[in-house]
Design a protein around this nucleic acid. Structure first.
Length: 425
RNA sequence: GGAGACGUGGCUGAGUGGUCGAAAGCGCCGGUUUGCUAAAUCGGUGAAGGGGUCAAACCCUUCCGCAGGUUCGAAUCCUGUCGUCUCCGCCA
């Protein structure tokens, strides 16, 4: 969320930003309520101060006066409680609006209401391949070699779930192992995170854990939800913690399962593994100083490019338009891999996404830093990026590296881990 | 899952109704002393929110895991909750 003072002082810019992002937040109402809230708070504090003053007097007052002072103090406390109650109502309303005001956008982020305004900024090392046969999609390949069992997933759990089987399990594990190793080489602390998090952390990261619009599976009779991404647990890792500026940036990566309800998202573009309710992901996350976040964002994007280049998968990099940023992101880059089996004759499909969320998440999660030798604390900047989302990486590998007999070549970087050059056939 | 103990400032740790935002020690910052270092010694040293100021100084409120309650007044009493530890049970 944005700082309240910032919103009030920059109301016009915040309003324009909401328009650019296609979000509807009543900034004027926010300013009005927040102003009221502050004056109520001052009133409550003043009444409290007066009551405190009286309470202190009681000890030294002559016994016969004590009851009268007590009575007066009691009245003041009652008035204070009333003012506080009014304040609390306002606070709730202010917080509700503040929660839906999106982050400001990077000045270079393309402005537009949806993904049609996304701007392609670069391409990977490899171009989409010209097949001399009709490429199959990953669903067909998965069926042919008994690699992916959607029927089994549907029977045990429901539509949108699947079993991975046979060699593709080893490919999946090899990708996790390889990606994590690559990140460790680049200074990331590897973690395996919980697959559940408290609703508070979910909300801090920018997810809406409950309610009709939610994309999140929540656990009944508890304040826990299944995470949609390790961004949630990694971001929550230091919630409430004040870090030292000397420890920043902290680069951390995490392997987790990701769960998404994908309510209303079924359709032709969601075939197979592309949009599923559960998948595994290796996620990058960083906490850093404000002045570091732009460069770090570029670094995360470049790592994603390195990984997909190493896997020999064609992709393009997209600078996401304001309307497609979501709430927390200040700027977002997506990698879209070429998926030969998608649509008619192949389509680009999102495989990674990296966002600079500046202090939008850290303000809610209260992740601060202290500059050594100075007073006060500030909010860190947080960034996240997909290293490998297994389901979509598997699509990319199967579809791009398939042979005419349906066998699939394993990218050279994974061969030492898997011990084979090819699967199927 | 059952029983018990505990949760105080960067750390250790005192504090069982007001004089406590909180002793003491350690650490840290600054001064003095000293050939350097160490030691000694003096002083300072939490956070959030609000007001105030050009900026400071300064003022107010809140914070002793968290949330409620009792009371004129709560670190201290009560309830709930979360976390940690120990023992038992169960278990991969």
């Amino acid at each position: 969320m944005l700082d309240r003072k910032f919103i009030i002082e920059n109301a016009a810019a915040v309003k324009q930003n909401c328009v650019n992002r296609g979000m509807d937040a009543d900034i004027d109402h926010f300013v009005e309520l927040e102003t009221q809230r502050k004056s109520k708070l001052q009133l409550a504090e003043e009444l409290n101060r007066q009551a405190n003053e009286l309470s202190k007097k009681i000890g030294s007052a002559p016994p016969e006066e004590r009851e009268a002072i007590k009575e007066e103090a009691r009245k003041l406390r009652e008035q204070k409680a009333a003012a506080q109650a009014e304040h609390d109502v306002l606070e709730e309303q202010v917080a509700a609006i503040q929660l839906i005001i999106p982050n400001m956008a990077h000045p270079d982020a393309p402005i537009g209401v949806d993904d049609k305004s996304n701007l392609e900024i670069s391409r990977g090392k490899f171009s989409p391949r010209q097949f001399d046969f009709k490429p199959q999609d990953h669903v067909e390949l998965g069926q042919k070699w008994d690699w992916i069992d959607f029927e089994g997933g549907a029977r045990t759990t429901g539509s949108g779930f699947y079993f991975l089987k046979n060699e593709i399990v080893l490919l999946d594990l090899a990708l996790q192992q390889w990606a994590t190793t690559e990140l460790v080489k680049r200074g990331f602390v590897p973690t395996m995170t919980p697959d559940l998090a408290t609703d508070e952390v979910l909300q801090g990261i920018g997810f809406n854990p409950r309610g009709p619009e939610t994309q999140v599976y929540s656990i009944e009779n508890s304040a826990l939800s299944l995470i949609g991404t390790a961004e949630i647990t990694l971001g929550g890792l230091y919630s409430g913690v004040t870090l030292s500026d000397e420890d920043l940036p902290i680069k951390i990566c995490g392997i987790s399962h990701c769960y998404r309800t994908e309510a209303g998202a079924a359709g032709r573009a969601s075939r197979g593994l592309y949009r599923v309710h559960q998948f595994t992901k290796v996620e990058m996350f960083a906490f850093c100083l404000p002045e570091q976040s732009d460069a770090l964002h570029d670094e995360l994007r470049d790592i994603e490019c390195d990984l997909f280049d190493a896997l020999e998968i064609p992709y393009r990099v997209v600078d996401t338009a304001t309307g497609d940023l979501g709430g927390p992101a200040y700027r977002k880059f997506d990698l879209e891999a070429w998926m030969p089996g998608r649509g008619d004759g192949g389509e680009w499909g999102e495989v990674t996404s990296t966002s600079n969320c500046t202090d939008y998440q850290s303000r809610r999660l209260k992740v601060r830093f202290k500059k050594e030798g100075t007073k006060g604390t500030h909010f860190v900047h947080t960034l996240n990026g997909t290293a490998i989302a297994l389901s979509r990486a598997l699509i990319s590998i199967l579809e791009n590296h398939q042979n005419s007999d349906g066998s699939v070549n394993i990218p050279p970087v994974l061969q030492p881990i898997m011990g084979v050059e090819k699967i199927g056939g």
